[in-house]
Design a protein around this nucleic acid. Structure first.
Lengths: 251, 251
DNA sequence: CGACCCTTTGAGGGCCGTCAAAGGGGGTGG
DNA sequence: CCACCCCCTTTGACGGCCCTCAAAGGGTCG
């Protein structure tokens, strides 16, 4: 039902468990071989450790194979903003390709497994496999959408609306990946501090608002798993509009 | 000194006034010819009119040739969030390529001139001119950075810090394009409502904060032009860190 | 000259931030 | 196996930043 973050990606991309999920675009055998030739190595990063350190340029690109991570930025005095969460299949490190100073950090939220690509292969992707280049752009545009959405949430929604939004959003992303169990629950590894940092709220107010939503029976977070008990009510509260699910690329 | 929004782009891309600016990456003659062959037509959009209507999928891509615009999203009850501002050279419409529902609107802030590309040419760019495909990704990643920065601002900065951030940011972008006059002023076509919508503030509070910064002499907005009188103080207030200026692609 | 948009200022209140402290749960070491 | 510790969660108190409501002033265009 879920991808085990302790199992590294298989040696052959053809055996990749992610690729077997219906939410990812199929690739040709040729493209698959090319992707595998780009894959430098495999790497495990433990929960709480940096995948890309803030203010450091990473010479690598990654595909998140298993586990959750997040992109973030911090101000000089320590205030932190989480930009978006990364789930299996997400591509990491593209921003570093086009700027001299690394702009944000990436941290593992759970234990993670990563497929590692040398950044010098990025140009090879575009020049040798145009369709994969197109897909890289696709992934980039898709990540920008996530940030767009989060910006609207942080800029214009009240605390309860923000939390409703985040819960629905993450639940849906986990659902796509087949992580929903028979009880309608998904793994939910965020602490309330993560939620606060993603939503532009304080920890205390995040806790009070979460408890309020839970008390009126909209959702339940128990033992690191999230269930949405009143999806419609949450969607109404957040002004959430489901997007049609569409296959996305996987590099 | 500034690009006149009433002058349409020249017939030949080789005569493009934007391309003569040092902030844009040079292209080969071959690429230039290709870009011109992709350019369907030219379009003027008056201040306040939609370039891409919210909730409509645009079958077109644009390069903003002259004038300012902005991307935004609105909630059902009318609350609006501006995601980022668009200045000459920015590429518009990429998100629409990869999702079924259009996710955001684009509105002209001033009178604008646009170069129009059919969206069916996007694939041609990747397949026939890999380097231009790479550049499209570059532009996409760069726009995401803008949204990242704005998200940090809205999520974690206080009102005065947000405003300082926006003023510096927009001034710098205009400077890159050579829009600074001898008095250190740039065109600044935003209303306070735009500033409020970009920063997640109310109009009233935006006004009061702007006046406060102006009263202590940090900046001046007069006759639609902005001057930064105390750049260092503004940067300290905003925790702003200048990024090295680097040439960017122009499609 | 009136209409409309944008700016400006005041008053009052509520949402959310900070400070403070206790409770719970899992891991580690004695 | 128990004790301790650390991290995360939870709750209360209080204050301030920012929101809403309201209304007047200025500039431009028809």
């Amino acid at each position: 039902m879920k991808t085990d973050a302790s199992t590294p990606p298989p040696r052959a991309c053809a055996d990749c468990r992610l690729r077997q999920l219906p939410c990812f675009l199929p690739v040709t055998l040729d493209e698959l071989g090319f992707i595998q030739s780009c894959r430098q190595t495999v790497q495990a990063v433990a929960a709480g450790r940096a995948i890309i350190a803030e203010h450091h340029v990473s010479p690598r690109l990654y595909t998140l194979y298993a586990g959750w991570a997040f992109r973030y930025k911090t101000l000089a005095d320590g205030r932190r903003q989480i930009l978006n969460f990364l789930l299996p299949g997400d591509f990491i490190g593209l921003q570093g390709e086009f700027t001299d100073d690394a702009t944000h950090g990436v941290e593992a939220l759970t234990d993670t497994q990563l497929c590692v690509f040398g950044h010098d292969r990025l140009w090879d992707i575009f020049s040798q496999q145009p369709r994969l280049g197109y897909n890289v752009t696709w992934l980039c545009a898709r990540e920008e959408q996530l940030v767009d959405d989060n910006l609207v949430t942080v800029g214009r929604r009240a605390a309860a609306e923000r939390i409703a939004m985040l819960l629905i959003h993450l639940w849906r992303r986990a659902e796509r990946l087949g992580h929903v169990d028979a009880q309608g629950a998904v793994d939910f590894p965020l602490t309330q501090q993560h939620i606060a940092d993603a939503l532009g709220l304080s920890l205390v107010h995040t806790n009070k608002t979460l408890r309020k939503l839970e008390r009126i029976g909209l959702h339940e977070i128990k033992a690191g798993r999230l269930r949405l008990l009143e999806l419609k009510a949450l969607e109404r509260m957040a002004d959430y509009h489901a997007r049609p699910m569409r296959q996305v690329p996987l590099i």
